[in-house]
């Protein structure tokens, strides 16, 4: 996950609570309290985690899966659904 940035104060944000940047820049991953850790030796590339991830944070490049910690909120569905227990939830 990206480094914590100093957030702007009330004088430097636009009025009305309008979205002034893309949601891509809003790292919802900092809500997470438990981080999924993948053991690639155990992983069979079955892609069940890829299908189940509600935040589309697991991607598949044709060879291996990766987890995007910028947006993963640590729900743990991937770890629960993994049939070979290749994903472990670790406290942040």
């Amino acid at each position: 996950m990206s480094e914590k940035q100093v957030k702007p104060g009330w004088k430097s944000i636009p009025i009305g609570g309008v979205c002034w940047k893309s949601s891509e820049e809003y790292s919802t991953g900092d809500w997470r309290s438990n981080r999924p850790i993948l053991d690639s030796d155990k992983c069979t590339n079955c892609l069940i985690c890829y299908i189940y991830c509600p935040d589309s944070c697991i991607s598949w490049d044709g060879e291996k899966i990766t987890i995007n910690y910028d947006y993963c909120k640590g729900c743990g569905i991937c770890a629960t659904e993994c049939p070979v227990t290749a994903i472990e939830m670790v406290k942040e």
């Binding site: 957030k7 702007p8 104060g9 009330w10 944000i13 009025i15 009305g16 609570g17 309008v18 979205c19």
Partner: peptide
Amino acid sequence: PLTMGPLALFDYYFEHKRQ
């Protein structure tokens, strides 16, 4: 295009109220 009325939680709500 812009988005009005989105969510702003503990990280930004307070700043909007100060404005």
